[in-house]
Design a protein around this nucleic acid. Sequence first.
DNA 1: ACAGGTGTAATCGTTGAGGTTACCTAATAA
DNA 2: TTATTAGGTAACCTCAACGATTACACCTGT
Lengths: 148, 148
Amino acid sequence: MRTSCRFAMAVHVLAVLAYKEGDRVTSAFLANSVNTNPVIIRRLLLSLQKARLVETCKGAGAGSRLSRSPQRINMAEVYRSVEAVESFATPARKPNAACPVGHCIKETLGRVFESAQTAMERDLAKTTLADVMKAVQASCDCGKKRDS
Amino acid sequence: MRTSCRFAMAVHVLAVLAYKEGDRVTSAFLANSVNTNPVIIRRLLLSLQKARLVETCKGAGAGSRLSRSPQRINMAEVYRSVEAVESFATPARKPNAACPVGHCIKETLGRVFESAQTAMERDLAKTTLADVMKAVQASCDCGKKRDS
DNA sequence: ACAGGTGTAATCGTTGAGGTTACCTAATAA
DNA sequence: TTATTAGGTAACCTCAACGATTACACCTGT
């Protein structure tokens, strides 16, 4: 399985917004942190806006900020807001209907896939943005220790 | 998130092998059921061989069969044998090291991803190939009822 | 009015996957 | 032994998806 990197980028963006604690942050600034293009960030922010995770103002002096506290944002929400609904892919071509297996395998697979994805999201829901921030700071501290 | 359709194809292939109950089945036959090319099936079978899920004989009158009973094959094994190890993608470009978030976010994300994937595989492990066969047959029965 | 930023369309390049052909190799049947 | 059959594998094509980039219209605070 492979995701797009949108989820990783989204968490990164939200972490920066959390770090900035309510200040409005521009897409250019975020793009610089993620090391990508502002347009990519803006497209991402549109998804996060729809999910009510961020608020964005237009015009001069504009930018984005979290619309909730980091404790109230969990990874499952972020994942759902940013990734395609369909997680598992089925072959493009229809299976051979004459085959007793091919005839009915698709819906059975669908149930298996759905259950697996639900399990994954339930796990993601356990981690909040605040947890991520804490872990990031801990990592950075370790890095400092190694350097010194 | 989006998977390749290799997992779906693999389950389909294994289901056909289970249906054939130990008979050697050729890649051409499997390809016809999945409605794809024999080479695709052979590439898939190589992965399944490595995972000791199927046995393949070469030469005339050759083909593949399950190396265990369907009750002893679960979806997590199939998934792992066939999908890439890395499930979640991180951006191709390195985040900006000067950004306090970008500097350390990657390993934190890695842990979140790993946990989520483990949760998913644990769920997949609950379903065996035998369960899938049962569900497929039930689906087909329902179809028959609708038709009559 | 203007400067700074978002929204969005259009386009390009890359990457990965499935699809296809072709050919070698192995094993069985004759 | 030889012919036949089928897997292993390389080479190549096509296509879709995604990130990257440019360009421009529109909004808004100063």
